[in-house]
Design a protein around this nucleic acid. Structure first.
Length: 158
DNA sequence: GCCAACGTTGGC
DNA sequence: GCCAACGTTGGC
């Protein structure tokens, strides 16, 4: 069970969708569509309203945790999977049993000093973070309460 | 742009 | 069920 899990990290390429884009979205909310990895999907299905999210810029210079968001709607079917014209269309997904879900998140804050991947690696307490594991490519991943606290402290945020 | 690591697909 | 081929991710 994932009961009690409250913290997550979600990756986005800033050239596609950045923390600034989230901050400027209507109601500062967005639907996290496009996830096409079962493990990441399962983590989204475990999310609850109010769960806190580290917003991470991947394929960025530098790659970094840049902000905080929160879950405002639990998992529901990602409609882009049924849209033939969409980049994330999945012809194998059955509308009566949608394969892919998304959640809605809302902007909370942009870190005054973003935390680069390098910086995170220097912190011994974070050595077990999923993000820092060799070869880790998960775009949605759990963060422990301890890791959350350490990251926010490093960022001077609360 | 390169490429290691990983996930998925499909032939057998 | 195995595993080679292929596609993707994402740091560098």
């Amino acid at each position: 069970m994932t009961e009690g899990r409250r913290y997550w990290l979600m990756k986005s390429e800033p050239r596609v969708f950045s923390i600034e884009d989230l901050a400027q979205s209507p109601k500062q909310m967005t639907s996290w569509d496009g996830v096409r990895n079962y493990q990441a999907r399962n983590f989204m299905r475990a999310m609850k309203v109010g769960d806190q999210v580290l917003f991470y810029h991947s394929n960025a210079e530098p790659p970094a945790v840049v902000g905080i968001a929160e879950v405002v709607r639990t998992a529901y079917p990602d409609k882009t999977q049924f849209d033939k014209t969409h980049h994330h269309y999945d012809p194998a997904s059955d509308p009566s049993a949608p394969r892919w879900d998304m959640v809605d998140i809302r902007y909370r804050q942009t870190l005054k000093a973003s935390l680069s991947l390098d910086r995170l690696r220097q912190e011994p307490k974070l050595k077990d973070m999923v993000l820092l594991r060799k070869g880790s490519r998960l775009s949605v991943q759990p963060v422990t309460e301890m890791e959350w606290a350490v990251v926010l402290k490093l960022a001077g945020a609360k």
